[in-house]
Design a protein around this nucleic acid. Structure first.
Lengths: 202, 202
DNA sequence: GTCTATAAAGAGATAGAC
DNA sequence: GTCTATCTCTTTATAGAC
């Protein structure tokens, strides 16, 4: 118990802010932000507790940075995916696919961003909410254009259709497994079909 | 700071295990399980910290009990709602409505159960997972019957349709507000329409 | 059934050596 | 850039009085 080898050996090169965010995201998603200790993060990276404070100011900053990163990534993925499409329905489909694939390929970060918002202090939380609202506006605009083009329902508002779409897509983070039967692309196709056409047989 | 009045006055009668679960659910959902202290729970109820240990064994037991309660409630709500329906599509609709209404009317408990599973110790977590799987089996059976009756798609498995349905319904806990524009019934109708018919205009 | 007081452990973060 | 050592605060839970 006492003569355990010192874990001074880092697992693959020097610690960087990027590696810290990756590892923190993994642990925050596994155990929750509040239940994850800075001790565990340091241990996972093979360094002493004090060492991580050379790279970051606080545990909360780590959470904040990782939320910013995830929102930038998904926004950029969706914006790029719809950029070269002009058909309104194609744009909706491209958005669904990009959202699902981006969310699941960087799962820990996105999941942490989506579920640990309340752990941030008010100013930082406000900034993440602002970025999230910006992203939701993009989604809503794509939905709204499709409504205006006459290819989506107008019985429900763009906001309602947007919220329902994000419902359908986002909850996937709670059960998706990389070793499961369905790939992110498979799931995107399934959700696209259900969202646009419904599951009832006509 | 020192001569603050003692909060010995309870807010409406004696503390009970039921009141403890209610208040704990509210705080766990607001701040997360790990970030909520037993001090805060006691303070919210107007009693001293030590007093709550007369009613419960530990903070974790509180979380466990509240998860059990929420799963029993939603299961019972759905089972009752479909009991008097025989048409397969009516049963799917009744399930959607009961799930949404039950989830949103007892929002803190259901939300906590859905998101704080990982905070439980292994044996207790296993028991909640068992109860949750049982409930999901009920949902899947209703979906599967509708597929067999030829009123729902068979291109996707019952499991896939069930997961997509719970996606669409469950994420609502993250944005639903009691003072919002849509009532639980409104939302149930919206989700029913989207799930069965899709949002594309045909 | 609730109180006061406190034990015992664990947390985030910093100082200063190397 | 990472280390050892430690400060200071907060936490869950218990003991024993009333």
């Amino acid at each position: 118990m006492k003569n355990r080898a010192k874990p001074t050996n880092r697992q693959g090169g020097a610690v960087t802010a990027e590696k810290l965010r990756e590892e923190a995201a993994r642990l925050f998603w596994e155990k929750g932000y509040a239940a994850t200790t800075t001790r565990e993060i340091a241990e996972s990276l093979g360094v002493q507790r004090a060492s991580i404070y050379y790279h970051i100011e606080s545990k909360e900053e780590l959470l904040y940075d990782l939320c910013v990163e995830s929102l930038r990534n998904i926004r950029s993925a969706v914006a790029t995916a719809v950029a070269d499409k002009s058909d309104p329905l194609d744009r909706v489909r491209a958005m669904i696919r990009a959202h699902v694939v981006s969310m699941l390929e960087d799962r820990e970060k996105h999941a942490t961003m989506l579920t640990e918002l309340r752990a941030l202090s008010a100013p930082r939380r406000a900034e993440i909410v602002r970025l999230r609202d910006e992203y939701e506006s993009l989604v809503r605009a794509i939905v709204s254009e499709a409504q205006e083009a006459g290819v989506l329902w107008k019985e429900a508002s763009a906001k309602e259709l947007e919220l329902a779409l994000l419902n359908l897509l986002n909850w996937t983070i709670f059960w998706y497994r990389t070793d499961g039967e369905l790939s992110p692309e498979d799931l995107a196709k399934l959700f696209e079909k259900i969202y646009l056409g419904g599951v009832a047989r006509t």
